[in-house]
């Protein structure tokens, strides 16, 4: 009886994440996808056809016939979308790289710190989350603008004679993304490094590795899982980021999040914005699935 109870319990535990994904990922995605196959209409909601059980089976079949991939075709015809995707990926890629370069030494330092300090250091990394994301991004405007904090201090110590134009350029976006997503990169890398057995480094040194070589041959490969996780946690949301490019980037910044927002709010073109979102998802999910498959295969080979 007890065994039965516990087996039901363990099944329930397994089901929970699937239910979650179904409710909050798959169903919304199906709805978005379905909207992307519709056409715009001046109506409420602003697209057609609208499915209704009242139409009966034949009505629904009729509605399904009206669905089409025209919006996806449209995305390929206007270069704007392609450029927006490309530029988003570029900006997100550069930001992810910068974040990694800054986060890795921080995570490494934290993992080397005395054990008693580590909880405090972790707290400090998470501390910025206690302030609203929006407020922190606005604060960057005050820092980066031509007469802002950064320029004033640089001018006053004489490093520069002209204010630097950072705000409303891609640099401001990089700074914003790096700053906002840094903890998401630090935490997985730290957790990978912290788990590492220090005697591995000693073993490498014992076998003739100077410290730097030991780092590249042992420490870094062993933290790779954390690096990959961190990069995904930064890259994926950064591609679709809207707030940071909108507030810090200039009007010429092309990012897919902004394009999507424009289609949705300014043009009220739900079907096209749904198509943009669907393609975005594909762009992000397909490489991840591919990557995971490769990793699983590599693991398999080691067996």
């Amino acid at each position: 009886m007890k065994a039965l109870g516990s087996s039901i319990f363990s099944r329930l535990v397994i089901i929970v994440p699937y239910v979650w994904l179904l409710l909050f990922f798959l169903i919304p995605f199906v709805i978005v996808f379905r909207i992307s196959l519709s056409t715009t209409a001046i109506a409420q909601p602003p697209y057609e056809p609208v499915f209704s059980l009242a139409d009966g089976l034949s009505g629904i079949i009729d509605n399904i016939r009206q669905l089409s991939f025209d919006n996806f075709v449209w995305l390929t015809e206007d270069a704007l979308y392609f450029n927006a995707y490309l530029s988003s990926i570029k900006i997100a890629g550069i930001s992810t790289l910068l974040t990694l370069l800054i986060a890795y030494p921080i995570a490494y330092g934290m993992a080397q710190a005395p054990r008693t300090w580590r909880p405090t250091l972790l707290m400090l990394v998470i501390l910025p989350f206690w302030t609203s994301f929006l407020i922190r991004v606005y604060a960057w405007i005050a820092i980066l603008k031509p007469e802002g904090l950064l320029n004033q201090s640089l001018l006053s110590i004489g490093v520069i004679s002209e204010p630097l134009i950072i705000l409303n350029t891609n640099w401001a976006i990089y700074i914003g993304i790096v700053y906002s997503y840094l903890p998401f990169m630090i935490l997985p890398i730290y957790s990978a490094l912290e788990k590492m057995d220090h005697s591995l480094i000693e073993a490498a040194q014992d076998l003739g590795c100077p410290p730097m070589t030991a780092f590249w041959k042992i420490t870094f490969p062993l933290s790779l899982a954390g690096v990959v996780a961190g990069c995904m946690l930064v890259f994926i949301p950064a591609v679709g980021e809207f707030v940071i490019p909108d507030l810090l980037g200039g009007s010429q910044t092309l990012m897919i999040g902004k394009t999507l927002w424009n289609e949705f709010n300014s043009n009220r073109d739900w079907p096209v914005s749904a198509a943009v979102a669907t393609v975005l998802l594909l762009i992000l999910v397909v490489p991840i699935v591919f990557f995971q498959n490769m990793q699983a295969k590599a693991d398999e080979k080691g067996r």
Partner: peptide, 21 residues
């Protein structure tokens, strides 16, 4: 430094590199 000593050690905890065959 340890990496220059003509001494090799077998560690009590083995310290095998997990990412290598």
């Amino acid at each position: 430094p340890p990496y220059k000593r003509p001494v090799n050690m077998m560690f009590q905890s083995y310290a095998l590199f997990p990412h290598m065959t």
